[in-house]
């Protein structure tokens, strides 16, 4: 029995290592581009550390380009969208999971339909609308749009997770004297932390990596977000690949950090068993 277990564990590691390598290889390529001299996207050599490698690109990002400004701007927008996403999705998901009310079925389907139009087609009317509301060149406009983009998935996802939590928990809470609101935030919300983590990550990523809407709405360089900044290294046929690659890697660092921090709650959230005792 024990040898079998060892064998399975070894196999697990083997598979994980294999997939990690596949996941990493293209990203290692990006790293190679970032330290390769001469702004080459491709190379005929497969060496991971290229000849004459240099960290000049990384230095240039912080010294010569307003990279810190872009990071700050993106951080403000993404943090606000994340908070909005978590606050609104955790509540709306709960209502959709637990209560019967008129318009519930149709709102759930309507949530999905908001994602069904190709984004490029919505750009022009969205832009016209924001002009009429004087929301061009402002973070308010972009935060509203990003929240609206992230929410459908977040709401559905929260709703799905609440669905897996038995009703009996709230019933016993109500018997113990909790009101509806207390039953929600004292009993159910803590149980749903894994879903909250996913909601937070997804909302953050939506705002952190979005380019098309940002480029149309934010015209003032002092408002630029990371994706717009990144795009400015790219010109038609003479992209600054080294800078682009270096910036791309740095851009992903906050996402990874956020994931590492949040994954504590993603994988070791309170289990139902522990609550039921």
């Amino acid at each position: 029995m024990n040898t079998k277990k060892y064998f399975i564990n070894a196999l697990t590691y083997l598979v994980l290592i294999l997939f990690t390598l596949i996941a990493l290889y293209p990203i290692i390529n990006v790293f190679t581009i970032s330290i390769r001299p001469g702004d080459k996207l491709l190379s005929t050599s497969l060496a991971i550390i290229p000849d004459n490698w240099t960290l000049r690109q990384y230095a240039e990002l912080f010294v010569k380009r307003p990279f810190m400004l872009w990071i700050m701007n993106s951080a403000i927008i993404s943090a606000t969208v994340t908070l909005t996403g978590v606050a609104l999705a955790s509540t709306a998901g709960y209502a959709l999971s637990r209560f019967q009310f008129v318009g519930k079925q149709s709102s759930m389907l309507a949530l999905l339909t908001t994602q069904m139009f190709p984004a490029t087609m919505l750009l022009l009317p969205m832009y016209i609308m924001l002009i009429k509301l004087h929301l061009i060149n402002s973070y308010l406009g972009i935060i509203i749009i990003y929240s609206a983009t992230a929410l459908p998935f977040c709401v559905w996802q929260m709703k799905g997770y609440y669905d897996t939590i038995p009703y009996s928990l709230e019933e016993s809470a109500r018997i113990d004297g909790c009101n509806k609101w207390q039953a929600f935030y004292k009993i159910i919300l803590p149980l749903a932390t894994p879903a909250l983590v996913i909601t937070a990550l997804f909302s953050f990523m939506t705002a952190w990596s979005e380019y098309i809407v940002a480029a149309q709405i934010l015209q003032d360089t002092s408002l630029y977000t990371l994706p717009i900044g990144l795009k400015s290294f790219e010109s038609n046929l003479s992209t600054e690949w080294g800078l682009y690659a270096a910036a791309s890697l740095i851009v992903s660092v906050p996402v990874v950090v956020l994931f590492v921090v949040l994954s504590k709650w993603l994988v070791s959230g309170l289990t139902l068993g522990s609550v039921k005792g």
Binding site: L16, F19, T20, A23, L24, P26, I27, V30, I33, M205, S209, P227, L230, E234, Y244, A245, S248, L249, V251, S252, V255, V256, F259, V260, S263
Partner: peptide, 13 residues
């Protein structure tokens, strides 16, 4: 953490 990297790095590059 390593396995989520394809999601974290900007798609374009």
């Amino acid at each position: 953490t390593l396995l989520i990297l394809p999601w974290a790095v900007p798609q374009y590059i």
